[in-house]
Computed example of a mutant assay.
Amino acid sequence: MKTQNQITVTQIETIEQFESLREEWNALLFQCVEKDVFLTWEWQFAWWKNIGQWEYQLWILLFHEDEQLIGIAPLMMSQKRKFRFHFRWLENIGNPECDVSTIISIEPQKTISALLRYLQEKRQEWDGLELMEVNATTTGNQEILKTLEDSHYGFWRTKEEHFYIPLMGNTWEEYYNQLSKNMKHNLKRRMKRIAEMGTVSFKKYSGNSLTWQDFQTMCKVSEKSNFPDLYKSDNLLSFHKDLLEFMRELGWVQIEMLFIDERPIAFQYGFLFDNKYEDWRGGIDKEFETLAPGKLLMVFSLEERFKLGLRESDFLRGVYSYKTDWNPLSREFTNIQVYNTSNIKSKLAYWWVKHLKPIVESLLSKEKQKEQQNDSS
């Protein structure tokens, strides 16, 4: 389909078409300011092949200006039930495992305008569009968000925070000295206690040195953590196996582990991409929980990242004390929903989200506060 200004929109609907896009997908992504490992063909295709294709309909859109690829909307269609209605819901591929999403583009204004025209053309086929974890600080994403908000569709957004530690301009020693006195005291005390239990070692696995056996060792630690079933699904295991296969030679995927003697007690699983580390998953053996092995592993990991000259260490989504303890900076992200208000059920859903839901949540919050006050009196 051609839109105004000679932008051609092509819809990708089969896994075979998706598989063939690797070279041009990444060539486009690496020209973008908003490049991220979660937006690479490798991450997106591995997730779709092993998880997405069994539950969703592929809805990737390619945007060409003349013969040049200028944008990709990595979308999928799901069926959701809300308010006793069935909704045809477009969302970013990888949701909810994906920590970063956007419309990939070197011409954001042209791409998002063409997307809106295409959605209008296909208005009988969708009810809502959702993008989760969009970086709201980059110019390209700001253009996309502003254009969606100014469109005739219903638009709703919620704020998120991603924490990160800038690594450039400081040494590890300078950074460590800026941590709170209490934090440094606890780290030193726990490091001493854990050293009394055996030989403490830090091991990093990346590139061609990273094997599936290393991943399985990590999984054994995860089985003793707060999320013992995280890597037990066959589909999820296949997804991670493909990630390793696709990314290993590129040096993008990395596992770090803390050992006492030969026993692994903590791990971090993430990505080394665009000169930054993205800390995706972590876990500890709960038998050693009082020693905070996750924090001790982070000491070794951060020191290593400073020495490598990376520009930042990104904790990704989620506001938790184990992140804020490290004095990180925060970056604004946003989740957005676009409602196709040309049909009545989407219009009702938008009215609920924008007007009624905040009132209900406010009333429930006040009721909870009253209950807490009564309990304390």
Results as ranks from 00 to 15, higher is better:
Thr3Asp: 04
Gln6Leu: 05
Val9Tyr: 08
Gln11Trp: 03
Glu13Trp: 00
Gln17Met: 09
Phe18Val: 09
Phe18Ala: 08
Glu24His: 11
Ala27Met: 01
Leu39Asn: 15
Glu42Ile: 02
Trp48Ser: 08
Trp54Ile: 01
Trp54Pro: 02
Glu55Cys: 05
Leu58Val: 08
Leu61Tyr: 10
His64Asn: 12
Leu69Val: 06
Leu69Asn: 10
Ala73Pro: 11
Pro74Gly: 04
Met76Pro: 02
Phe85Ser: 08
Arg88Cys: 07
Glu97Lys: 05
Val100Leu: 01
Ser101Trp: 01
Ile103Phe: 08
Glu107Pro: 08
Lys110Ser: 14
Lys110Gly: 07
Arg117Tyr: 06
Arg123Phe: 06
Asp127Val: 02
Gly128Phe: 03
Leu129Trp: 08
Glu130Ile: 01
Glu130Gln: 15
Leu131Thr: 03
Glu133His: 15
Val134Ser: 02
Thr138Leu: 14
Gly140Glu: 01
Glu143Ala: 03
Ile144Met: 12
Leu145Thr: 04
Leu148Trp: 05
Leu148Val: 01
Ser151Leu: 09
Arg157Thr: 07
Arg157Trp: 04
Lys159Pro: 13
Glu161Ser: 15
Ile165Val: 11
Ile165Arg: 13
Pro166Leu: 00
Met168Thr: 13
Glu173Pro: 03
Leu179Asp: 05
Ser180His: 09
Ser180Tyr: 00
Asn182Thr: 12
Met191Gln: 14
Val200Tyr: 05
Phe202Cys: 05
Tyr205Ile: 06
Asn208Phe: 06
Ser209Lys: 11
Ser209Val: 00
Ser209His: 10
Ser209Asp: 13
Thr211Glu: 06
Trp212Cys: 07
Gln213Thr: 14
Asp214Gly: 07
Glu223Asn: 14
Pro228Gly: 12
Pro228Tyr: 13
Tyr231Gln: 07
Leu236Cys: 05
Leu237Trp: 02
Lys241Asp: 04
Asp242Leu: 01
Leu244Gln: 15
Phe246Cys: 05
Leu250Ala: 13
Gly251Cys: 10
Gln254Phe: 00
Glu256Trp: 00
Met257Gly: 12
Asp261Gln: 03
Glu262Cys: 02
Pro264Ser: 02
Pro264Phe: 00
Gly270Cys: 06
Leu272Met: 08
Lys276Leu: 02
Asp285Ala: 04
Glu289Phe: 10
Leu291Val: 04
Met298Tyr: 08
Val299Ile: 03
Ser301Thr: 13
Phe306Cys: 09
Phe306Leu: 09
Leu316Trp: 02
Leu316Asn: 12
Gly318Val: 06
Val319Arg: 15
Val319Cys: 13
Ser321Asn: 10
Lys323Trp: 11
Asp325Asn: 12
Thr334Trp: 10
Ile336Phe: 04
Thr341Arg: 14
Ser342Asp: 13
Ser342Thr: 15
Ile344Trp: 08
Leu348Cys: 07
Leu364Asn: 15
Leu364Phe: 11
Leu364His: 12
Lys366Trp: 03
Gln372Pro: 06
Asn374Gly: 03
Asp375Glu: 11
Ser377Pro: 05
